[in-house]
Amino acid sequence: MAELRITIGGRDFDVACQEGEEQYLKAAAAMLDNEAQALSVQLGRIPEARMLLMAGLMLADKAAGAEDNVRVLSARVEELERQLAVARSNPVKIEVPVVPPAVTETLAEIAARAEALADRVEEAVSA
């Protein structure tokens, strides 16, 4: 077991945790300390047990709010996944218009005539 000294609300505590869990414990202690510091600013010095209780309740409230958000977002993800599955099972057909061969031939004929006219104009201008 690893032993750590953490500070919460300006008070030091010696705690133990499993090997490799030190970073998680430090992060949790920092969160609790942030709440305890906010309480100290608002209420001044309060008894240790009350400070820890109130800080824990504030964190629990935040965790409950986060859990509610997770539930809402999970439901939204499920809905979007369902819509995606429906969309994949019913693909939309997109038709790309194709230029009919007759139009292509007509445009080629018009271009040839325009080039012939341009040649005639050049010959007339040169002469």
Rank of each mutant, 00 (worst) to 15 (best):
M1W: 09
M1A: 10
E3T: 13
I6Q: 01
T7Y: 02
I8Q: 02
G9F: 00
G10A: 03
R11K: 12
R11M: 05
D12G: 02
F13G: 00
E19S: 02
E19W: 01
E21V: 03
Y24S: 09
Y24N: 09
K26G: 00
A28G: 00
A30W: 01
A30R: 02
M31R: 11
M31S: 09
M31N: 09
D33S: 05
E35M: 08
Q37E: 14
Q37N: 13
L39K: 03
S40V: 13
V41Y: 12
V41W: 09
L43W: 12
G44D: 02
G44I: 02
G44C: 03
G44Y: 04
G44E: 01
I46P: 07
I46F: 07
P47R: 04
E48I: 11
A49I: 01
M51A: 10
L52H: 04
M54S: 06
M54I: 10
A55K: 12
A55Q: 10
G56K: 05
L57G: 04
M58Y: 13
M58Q: 15
M58G: 12
L59Q: 12
A63C: 06
G65K: 00
G65M: 00
A66S: 14
E67Q: 15
E67V: 05
V70A: 11
R71A: 05
R76N: 09
V77R: 15
E79I: 04
E79W: 06
E79L: 08
L80V: 07
E81G: 06
R82P: 05
Q83L: 12
Q83Y: 06
A85C: 07
V86Y: 14
V92W: 07
V92K: 12
E95F: 14
V96S: 13
P100W: 01
P100A: 03
P101Y: 06
T104Q: 15
E105I: 12
E105Y: 14
T106G: 11
A108N: 12
A108V: 08
E109D: 09
E109Y: 05
A112W: 08
R113G: 10
E115H: 04
E122Y: 07
E122I: 05
E123Y: 03
V125Y: 06
S126E: 11
A127F: 15
